[in-house]
Simulated assay, not measured.
Amino acid sequence: MRRRAIRIQVWVNDDENAKLEMSAKKTGLSRESYIRSLINGYVPKEMPSPDYFTMMRELHAIGNNLNQLAAKAHVMGHLDRGIFQQEAEHLRSVVQQIQQAVTAPEPRNVSQGSSSVHPP
């Protein structure tokens, strides 16, 4: 285990503290770990949404089903096309859901200082 024997104390104002707290919370790291990451040249990524973990479990389950089908096809010498097509379609559907969740634009939050452009 890595030992840290040097303590550094830094004074920040309320705004800086709020930014640090918010940034660390978004990543799931403690303030100290967040700062250490920055010092070491890494900008921590925000934690993915809970949907990400649900989608990943779904992909793992589909992959497991496809592996089982492949193993069965290898032993029996043929593939049940209906079941394979069903799993392949399920995979395509989940991939589309992931793409939508990751790439689709989200509505801007007005409180984030957006410029106001109103249609005539």
Score class of each variant (00 low, 15 high):
His74Asp: 12
Gly41Phe: 03
Pro48Gly: 13
Ala61Asp: 10
Pro120Thr: 09
Glu46Trp: 05
Pro119Asp: 12
Glu21Trp: 01
Arg2Ala: 13
Met76Val: 02
Pro50Met: 10
Gln68Trp: 01
Met55Phe: 15
His118Asp: 08
Tyr42Ile: 15
Gln85Phe: 04
Leu91Glu: 01
Ala24Glu: 10
Ile62Arg: 01
Met47Arg: 13
Gln97Cys: 02
Ser49Gln: 14
Ala71Arg: 15
Gln68Asn: 06
Met1Gln: 07
Pro107Val: 03
His78Ile: 00
Phe53Ile: 05
Gln100Leu: 00
Met22Ala: 14
Val12Ser: 03
Asn109Arg: 09
Gln99Pro: 02
Leu91Lys: 01
Glu89Tyr: 02
Gly113Asp: 06
Ile83Asp: 03
Val95Ile: 15
Glu58Trp: 03
Arg3His: 11
Val110Asn: 05
Gln112Leu: 08
Lys26Ala: 15
His74Ile: 00
Glu106Trp: 03
Asn17Pro: 04
Glu32Pro: 04
Gln68Glu: 02
Glu58Arg: 07
Tyr52Gln: 09
Pro105Leu: 11
Arg57Val: 04
Ala71Trp: 02
Leu59Ile: 14
Ser23Asn: 14
Ser93Glu: 05
Pro120Glu: 13
Arg92Lys: 08
Met22Phe: 11
Glu32Asn: 15
Ala73Met: 05
Lys19Phe: 10
His60Lys: 14
Ile6Gln: 12
Arg3Ile: 10
Ser93Met: 06
Ser23Ala: 15
Thr54Arg: 15
His78Thr: 11
Ser30Val: 08
Asn65Met: 06
Tyr52Met: 11
Gly77Met: 04
Ala24Pro: 09
Pro105Asn: 08
Ile39Asn: 04
Gln97Glu: 11
Arg2Met: 12
Val10Asn: 00
Val43Ser: 09
Gly82Pro: 01
Leu66His: 05
Asn67Lys: 13
Gln85Gly: 00
Glu16Arg: 11
Glu32Lys: 13
Lys19Asn: 12
Lys72Phe: 04
Arg3Met: 13
Ser30Leu: 09
Asp15Lys: 12
